[in-house]
Amino acid sequence: MNWSWDVIFDNLPKLINGAWLTLELVVISGLIGVMLSLPLALMRVSKRRWVQAFPFAYIFFFRGTPLLIQIFLVYYGASQFDVIKESALWPILREPYWCAIITFALHTAAYIAELLRGAIQSIPKGELEAGKALGMSYPLMLRRIILPRAFGIMMPSYGNEVILMLKGSALASTITLLDLTGMARTVIARTYTPLEIFLAAGVIYLIISAVIIALFRFLERRFNRHQHWPNEKPKDLDAQL
């Protein structure tokens, strides 16, 4: 077989350009996703049925349909309606970049909301009761107990979700974006060296994953530092007592 290292080195700058776009899509849509997921999760844990209904339907839809179909519906589907083409949203919706960000954010928000709901519900009852006993209001408990604890609990699975989104972002290439996958496919269309270029792209994805994993290890330790108390300095403990 004719393995060519040159084709990888020649096209590396293009692939790295693509990798930046991939990172941009994952990070921006991820941040929007977290912001959207917060109200969704809080509504989802509500005891009132009518408050639960919307997040339930939302999560059901976005978890139950493939990301590819969602991105096609937003990019190709929405643009077939004149109402949308004439609306104020069109300058945003006509750009594949924003279509990808919107779809990824809506998609990942559903998953994060579900993670967050699980995390909130698994906070030990005692901690919430302690908060109530101290006379904390709901917003204060949310800020001091519920959210910090929930983030700590969900952090490992959230890291997982970010990596899934990194790989899911390859679907941006189906709507003309030159992300890492799109760039790789465009290069392959000229060079006919799929093995070399996909290998290079795969390695770049791995490196990005490794960075994400490291980042989440750090966040996990930070949010769950109370669980590592023997490593903390005794004087900090004294202060808390």
């Binding site: 190709y76 643009s79 077939q80 083409k85 006509r94 003309t176």
Partner: peptide, 8 residues
């Protein structure tokens, strides 16, 4: 073709 009809 779809994107030609969408005006993009």
């Amino acid at each position: 073709y779809l994107d030609l009809s969408s005006g993009r």
